[in-house]
Nucleic acid binder design. Structure first.
Lengths: 149, 149
DNA sequence: TGAATAAATAAGAATGATTCTCATTTTATC
DNA sequence: GATAAAATGAGAATCATTCTTATTTATTCA
């Protein structure tokens, strides 16, 4: 049960620290519940829905989860990801720019994260379009996963 | 009022015909309301939400709009697009593969469609990942539009 | 052409995610 | 420690989406 939490020094720590610091700088006071939301988001390797977060955080109100996500999104610390389900999901944004995108299986709904350097390059090479300054991007590929085909 | 409908021979026609044909081949009977939904989708140059469709189609029940979209999506004739609002939007899928992606302004919410050949190439060059066969893709860029900056 | 059959539909109820409200608890400041 | 303002939990309210059901309409076939 604690295996996932204990996987050798990963990246959740740094992001959590960074996020809490940014919240503080933005003028938000410390809040126990919000901190727990941030920590839980920091533990995830991929996107998670607000309701899942609420489920896993006993004693934290649902409204607080939604509020925390809203503030984090406002500061660019999490990114909303549409995976096609009933609700949106959110994922931490690495301050160093390292990130992944998603493959979604149209049959079983499975979500598989992937990275691709060429794709990132293609995105970055169009960083301005029609005077539009790009801050973030989201790519979702849909199809049939190996298990389903 | 009829200007939009009358804009010189565009692409709505072909898509509408194709969609109605596909629905028919899939075993669906003709339905006046569904046909109106298909025609309205065919007129759009970009994504539209189910509720907007329902608003514009007097006499067509909301459930019918949702059902039609569901069937069209099932057949790959429309694609769901997440533009960050309260509801998802849908857009016709060109049978010839021609399509665009979206820039969304984080400040005013404006949605600007764009096309980029290099990006398409980068996507196509990874058409199989981990045994995953890709059927469609969606790219959304977020930032600040020219008017807002 | 005129039943018979089953799909399509409209209207509104039901559901479920998200947002809002407000009384209470914490945090930061002094 | 006392005060002012933000953070929070609980539950109500809202809004998109789905479901239900009675009715209408499309197709089939005599």
């Amino acid at each position: 049960m604690s295996t996932a939490t204990q996987r050798a020094g990963q990246e959740s720590g740094p992001w959590v620290d960074h996020a809490l610091e940014q919240l503080s700088e933005a003028g938000y006071r410390r809040g126990g519940s919000r901190t727990r939301v941030v920590e839980m988001l920091g533990e995830q390797d991929c996107a998670i829905t607000p309701l899942e977060l609420d489920d896993r955080l006993d004693g934290v109100g649902r409204a607080t989860v939604y509020r925390a996500i809203e503030q984090l999104e406002e500061l660019g610390l999490v990114q909303r990801i549409d995976l096609g389900g009933d609700s949106a999901a959110y994922e931490k944004v690495d301050p160093r720019g390292h990130h992944h995108h998603h493959l979604v299986c149209n049959r079983c709904g499975r979500v598989i994260p992937f990275e691709d350097e060429d794709l990132e390059k293609a995105i970055h090479s169009l960083s301005t379009r029609d005077g539009f300054s790009i801050q973030s991007h989201e790519i979702t590929l849909r199809g049939i996963c190996a298990d389903c085909s």
